[in-house]
Deep mutational scan, measured.
Amino acid sequence: GPREVTMKKGDILTLLNSTNKDWWKVEVNDRQGFVPAAYVKKLDSGTGKELVLALYDYQ
């Protein structure tokens, strides 16, 4: 199956793709996968990378 990404509340993840309104593709610890968009919030990183903050645990 697809590689699952797990996250804990407060984690910072790299946002790869947010074109789908329900599932965003993120990368964390060299793993890529989809997380519910409602579970993360975009951060203003000030760099080229888009980052998101995990609002809830997800696994």
Score class of each variant (00 low, 15 high):
Lys9Glu: 06
Val52Ala: 08
Arg31Met: 14
Asn17Thr: 06
Val40Glu: 02
Lys42Pro: 08
Leu53Ser: 04
Tyr58Cys: 02
Arg31Ile: 14
Ala38Pro: 06
Thr6Phe: 15
Leu15Ile: 04
Met7Leu: 06
Lys25Tyr: 15
Gly10Cys: 04
Leu51Lys: 09
Pro2Met: 14
Leu55Glu: 04
Val26Arg: 00
Gln32Lys: 08
Val35Pro: 01
Ala37Asn: 03
Val5His: 04
Lys8Trp: 06
Val52Arg: 00
Pro36Asp: 03
Gln32Asn: 07
Asn29Lys: 08
Val52Pro: 00
Asn17Lys: 06
Glu4Ile: 14
Leu13Glu: 00
Lys9Arg: 11
Gln59Pro: 15
Met7His: 01
Tyr58Asn: 01
Lys8Thr: 07
Lys9Tyr: 04
Glu50Asp: 12
Met7Asn: 00
Asp30Asn: 12
Asn20Pro: 03
Gly48Ile: 07
Leu13Ile: 06
Lys9Thr: 07
Lys21His: 09
Gly10Asp: 04
Lys42Glu: 06
Thr6Met: 11
Tyr56Trp: 09
Trp23Val: 03
Gln59Glu: 13
Lys49Ala: 11
Leu53Pro: 00
Thr47Glu: 13
Gly48Phe: 08
Val35Trp: 02
Val28Lys: 13
Leu15Arg: 00
Ala54His: 01
Asp44Met: 10
Gln59Ser: 15
Lys9Gly: 04
Leu16Pro: 01
Ser18Glu: 11
Val40Phe: 06
Val40Tyr: 01
Glu27Met: 11
Asp22Met: 10
Pro36Trp: 05
Lys21Tyr: 06
Asp30Thr: 07
Leu51Gln: 11
Thr14Gly: 05
Lys25Ile: 15
Asn20Ser: 09
Gln59Ala: 12
Gln59Ile: 12
Val28Gln: 11
Gly33Val: 15
Lys8Cys: 10
Leu55Ala: 02
Gly10Glu: 02
Phe34Glu: 04
Asp57His: 04
Thr6Asn: 13
Ala38Gly: 11
Thr19Glu: 14
Lys21Cys: 08
Leu55Phe: 03
Val5Phe: 15
Gly46Arg: 09
Asp11Ile: 03
Lys9His: 05
Gly33Thr: 08
Gly48Val: 08
Trp23Asp: 00
Val26Thr: 01
Asp30Val: 04
Pro36Gly: 03
Arg3Trp: 15
Phe34Leu: 06
Ser45His: 10
Leu53Gln: 11
Arg3Gln: 14
Leu43Glu: 03
Lys8Asn: 07
Lys49Ile: 13
Pro36Gln: 03
Asp44Gly: 14
Lys42Ser: 06
Thr6Gln: 12
Leu43Pro: 00
Ala37Met: 04
Tyr56Ser: 08
Pro36Ile: 05
Asp57Glu: 05
Val52Thr: 02
Glu27Cys: 13
Asp22Tyr: 15
Lys41Ser: 09
Ser45Tyr: 11
Leu51Thr: 08
Lys21Pro: 14
Ser45Ala: 11
Leu13Arg: 00
Asp22Gly: 07
Lys8Tyr: 07
Pro36Arg: 04
Lys25Arg: 10
Trp23Lys: 01
Leu51Tyr: 11
Thr6Trp: 13
Asn20Arg: 08
Glu50Ser: 12
Trp23Pro: 00
Leu15Thr: 01
Tyr58Ile: 03
Met7Arg: 00
Val28Thr: 10
Asp30Phe: 08
Thr19Trp: 08
Ala54Glu: 00
Lys25Ala: 08
Gly33Arg: 05
Leu15His: 00
Lys41Glu: 14
Leu55Asp: 01
Asp22Arg: 11
Gln59Met: 12
Pro2Asn: 13
Glu50Tyr: 08
Thr19Ile: 08
Glu4Lys: 14
Asp22Gln: 10
Gly10Leu: 02
Thr14Val: 15
Val5Gln: 04
Asp11Gly: 02
Asn29Thr: 05
Leu13Gln: 00
Gly10Arg: 01
Thr47Ala: 12
Asp11His: 04
Asp44Ile: 12
Pro36Met: 04
Lys42Leu: 13
Val35Gly: 01
Leu15Trp: 01
Leu43Phe: 10
Lys21Val: 08
Asp30Ser: 11
Asn17Arg: 05
Pro2Thr: 13
Ser18Lys: 07
Ala37Pro: 07
Glu27Lys: 07
Arg3Gly: 14
Leu53Ile: 15
Leu55Tyr: 03
Gln32Tyr: 10
Leu16Cys: 05
Arg3Ile: 13
Val35Ile: 08
Ser45Trp: 10
Lys9Ile: 07
Gly33Gln: 06
Val28Cys: 10
Glu50Gly: 09
Gly33Tyr: 15
Met7Tyr: 04
Leu55Met: 08
Leu55Trp: 02
Lys42Gly: 04
Glu50Gln: 14
Pro2His: 14
Asp11Glu: 07
Ala37Thr: 04
Ala38Lys: 15
Glu4Asp: 13
Tyr58His: 03
Gln59Leu: 10
Asp57Gln: 04
Gly33Trp: 13
Thr47Phe: 11
Leu53Ala: 05
Leu16Val: 12
Ala38Asp: 13
Leu55Gly: 01
Asn20Gly: 08
Gly46Met: 11
Ile12Tyr: 05
Ala38Glu: 11
Thr19Gly: 08
Gly33Cys: 12
Lys25Pro: 01
Val35Lys: 00
Asp11Lys: 02
Lys42Asn: 05
Ser18Tyr: 06
Glu4Arg: 15
Glu27Asp: 05
Gly46Trp: 09
Asp44Ala: 12
Trp23Glu: 02
Asp44Trp: 10
Arg3Cys: 15
Gln59Tyr: 13
Val40Leu: 15
Arg3Tyr: 15
Glu27Ala: 10
Val28Asp: 06
Lys8Glu: 05
Asn20Gln: 08
Lys49Asn: 10
Gly1Thr: 13
Asn20Thr: 05
Ser18Asp: 14
Thr14Glu: 07
Val28Asn: 13
Asn17Cys: 13
Leu43Met: 08
Ala54Pro: 01
Pro2Ser: 13
Gly33Lys: 04
Asp11Trp: 06
Lys8Ser: 07
Asn17Ala: 09
Tyr56Lys: 14
Leu53Arg: 07
Asp11Phe: 04
Leu55Lys: 04
Val26Cys: 03
Gly1Gln: 13
Leu43Arg: 01
Lys49Phe: 10
Trp24Met: 03
Phe34Tyr: 14
Asp30Gln: 09
Ile12Asp: 00
Asn29Cys: 08
Arg31Asn: 09
Gly10Ile: 02
Gln59Val: 14
Glu50Thr: 12
Asp22His: 15
Leu51Phe: 09
Ser45Asp: 13
Gly46Asn: 14
Gly33Asp: 05
Leu13Gly: 07
Asp11Leu: 03
Thr47Lys: 10
Trp23Asn: 01
Trp24Thr: 02
Val40Met: 06
Leu43Cys: 10
Lys41Asp: 07
Asn17Asp: 15
Val28Met: 13
